[in-house]
């Protein structure tokens, strides 16, 4: 079996993967990072979203070997030094999750959304951009609120970091 090396959440990792091993399987089964979930077979639910080289990608529709040398961020890699990412904090503060299963994908999607669309996101934009993430619990109401708040917090954080 080929050996695969990549950077996951800032740390170099390597492990064996078959040609058919999906990135999500490599993360969950080989690296034991089980925060990335599988909710469908057709790349629609978004529970498996991770960032590959800074962009949100469905890890259930990506081959692990295709990610050799890439830098992957999963939900486990967002908090730094015990401090939650502003988007994680916003989901908690705004009750943006219930069962929690879609949540890692939602948060990864939300951060990608901010990266592409900026920190001032209106409701319509957020709803449109969430097309690839399905939640069955929340009716999206509080997810939309969470993302708007998280985006604004990322904006403030960015300003703060820029000032430092």
């Amino acid at each position: 079996m080929p050996t695969l090396s990549m950077t996951v959440n800032g740390k170099p990792v390597s492990g064996e993967a078959e040609g058919r091993t999906l990135l999500v399987q490599f993360l969950r089964e080989t690296l034991r990072l089980t925060g990335t979930h599988v909710g469908c077979d057709t790349s629609q639910c978004g529970a498996c979203l991770v960032h590959i080289d800074g962009k949100a990608v469905k890890s259930c529709t990506t081959l692990a070997l295709a990610c050799a040398g890439a830098s992957i961020t999963t939900i486990e890699g967002l908090a730094r030094d015990g401090k939650l990412h502003p988007m994680q904090e916003a989901f908690r503060e705004n009750h943006g999750l219930q069962c929690g299963f879609c949540t890692p994908g939602m948060i990864m999607s939300a951060i990608d959304m901010v990266n592409r669309k900026g920190t001032d996101l209106d409701e319509q934009t957020i709803r449109h951009e969430l097309e690839g993430n399905i939640c069955r619990c929340t009716g999206y109401h509080n997810i939309v609120k969470s993302i708007a708040a998280g985006a604004a917090a990322m904006g403030k954080e960015g300003l703060r970091q820029a000032a430092e």
């Binding site: 925060g35 939650l84 929690g100």
Partner: peptide, 13 residues
Amino acid sequence: DHRFITGKGRYVD
């Protein structure tokens, strides 16, 4: 929520 937003939920799979 802390465990769910940090990817530390523990589902059967």
